[in-house]
C-alpha cells in the first residue's frame, strides 16, 4: 500500500523554535545576543575588540567566537571579556547546539551582551538561527561595495550593517553610498554604521545603538518587537 502525506512544513521550523527558546531565555536574563556575520577578514574580531573594550566599561560582556581552526580570536578577545572559542573543525557555520555548549562554558554570570562571532562566511550562517536578537553584517571597504546583491539572504535577515576599515577608503574604489543603497534594496530597515575599529572611529555610535537595542529588548513598550532574525525575512 502507498500513501502520500501532505506536510507543508518549513524544514527549519523545529530548529527555529529551539532558537526562539534560547533567545527568550537570554532576553529574560537581560542578555542581548548579537551575531556578527561577514566574509573572512572583514574585521569582525577587530570590531569586537573595540566594542568589548568600550562596552565592558559599563556592561557585562561575553563573547563566543567560531572558527574552523585555532583559538587565535579567543586569545585576542580574552583581555576584554570572557570568551569561548568554538572550533568547528571544518564546518562552515555555527548552529544553536554549538552556541549552547559554548555558553555553558562561560563563567556563570548575568551578562548584558553576548556576542557571537560566526565563522567568516556570508552564505551558510545566514540560513541558521542561533538564537540571536540582532544579526549584524560586517562589510569591509576592501572587499568591494557589491556584497549585498551577491549575498541577499545574509543581508535580508540582518538588522544592522557595519562598514569597516573606513580608514582605507582613500585607497580603494569603494562607494559607501552604493554599498548602502545595494544593501537597503534588500533590507530597507538596515541600520548602517561606518567604523575604523583600529582607531575606534565610529565605535561610539555603534555601541550606543547596541545599548539602545538592549534597552528596547528590556522595555519593549515603545519599541519594535524583537523577532527571530533568520526566520522573519
Amino acid at each position: 500500500m502507498r500513501e502520500t502525506i501532505t506536510v507543508n512544513q518549513d524544514v527549519l521550523a523545529a530548529r527555529r523554535a529551539a532558537a526562539d527558546r534560547f533567545r527568550t531565555r537570554m532576553g529574560d536574563c537581560g542578555t542581548l545576543v548579537v551575531q556578527l556575520l561577514s566574509s573572512p577578514g572583514a574585521g569582525k574580531t577587530t570590531l569586537l575588540e573595540a566594542t568589548a573594550q568600550r562596552l565592558s566599561q559599563r556592561w557585562k560582556v561575553a563573547i563566543l567566537v567560531g572558527d574552523l581552526a585555532t583559538d587565535r580570536d579567543a586569545q585576542r578577545l580574552a583581555p576584554y571579556a570572557p570568551t569561548v572559542q568554538i572550533t568547528t573543525g571544518g564546518t562552515c557555520h555555527l548552529e544553536l547546539p554549538l552556541i549552547e555548549n559554548a555558553y555553558a562554558q562561560l563563567p556563570p554570570d548575568r551578562y548584558d551582551f553576548l556576542f557571537v562571532e560566526d565563522v567568516g562566511n556570508l552564505v551558510c550562517p545566514a540560513s541558521h538561527d542561533v538564537g540571536q536578537h540582532l544579526r549584524v553584517i560586517v562589510q569591509s571597504v576592501t572587499e568591494g561595495d557589491d556584497k549585498a546583491g551577491k549575498y541577499p539572504k545574509a543581508f535580508r535577515t540582518a538588522q544592522a550593517l557595519v562598514i569597516s576599515k573606513i580608514d582605507l577608503l582613500p585607497h580603494v574604489p569603494f562607494m559607501v553610498d552604493a554599498a548602502i543603497e545595494d544593501a537597503q534594496a534588500i533590507q530597507p530597515h538596515l541600520e548602517v554604521f561606518s567604523v575604523c575599529a583600529l582607531d575606534h572611529k565610529g565605535i561610539a555610535p555603534w555601541c550606543r545603538y547596541l545599548e539602545k537595542q538592549r534597552e528596547q529588548m528590556l522595555h519593549p513598550v515603545h519599541a519594535q518587537p524583537m523577532t527571530s532574525a533568520a526566520s522573519h525575512s
Binding site: 500500500m1 500513501e3 501532505t6 507543508n8 518549513d10
Partner: peptide, 17 residues
C-alpha cells in the same frame, strides 16, 4: 514581507507499507 521563496518546504511524503 517575503511571502514565499525564502524557505525549504517539505511538501509531502510518500510512504510504502
Amino acid at each position: 514581507r517575503v511571502q514565499t521563496g525564502d524557505r525549504i518546504l517539505l511538501l509531502s511524503l510518500t510512504l510504502l507499507y
